[in-house]
């Protein structure tokens, strides 16, 4: 910490930030949980690659993969992961992107709520496309 911070007040008080500062406010806790969602995004990549590999190896491997993913431990992991991924999707699409994006229509800036609705539509379409492709 720099001493020259307050040249005219040599005796000032500055409390230290506790390690678990994010437990002190609901909004801080939500922020840390949101950041932790990235761990489950990474887990999803691993899971997806294992699935694609199993499907490519043949019906036997695919069967085994589905059985493995039906074990209680893995189901629980994926339920938790889905909760975090939903937290990520909701915060990203409805709080972050409406704040960060400037979308203009005929020269006028669209209000954040409209961008949020646009994101919702995009999310629904992308999900529908994924479901359609996989279930045929």
């Amino acid at each position: 910490m720099k001493v020259e911070y307050t040249p005219f007040h040599p005796r000032w008080h500055r409390p230290r930030v506790p390690v678990f500062w994010w437990l002190r406010r609901r909004s801080y806790l939500l922020f840390v949980l949101r950041e932790l969602s990235s761990v489950f995004v990474a887990w999803f990549v691993v899971f997806l690659l294992l699935l694609v590999n199993a499907v490519a190896q043949g019906p036997e491997d695919y069967r085994r993969f589905v059985d493995w993913s039906a074990t209680p431990g893995l189901l629980l992991l994926n339920v938790v992961a889905l909760c975090f991924i939903l937290l990520h999707a909701v915060t990203w699409l409805f709080t972050l992107s409406p704040h960060a994006m400037v979308v203009r229509l005929r020269g006028r800036r669209l209000p954040p709520a409209v961008i949020g609705v646009g994101d919702l539509v995009a999310w629904m379409l992308a999900s529908a496309l994924v479901i359609f492709l996989i279930l045929g």
Binding site: L86, A89, S127, V130
Partner: peptide, 8 residues
Amino acid sequence: ALLVPALL
């Protein structure tokens, strides 16, 4: 955000 919820 767009693809992983449905896929997972």
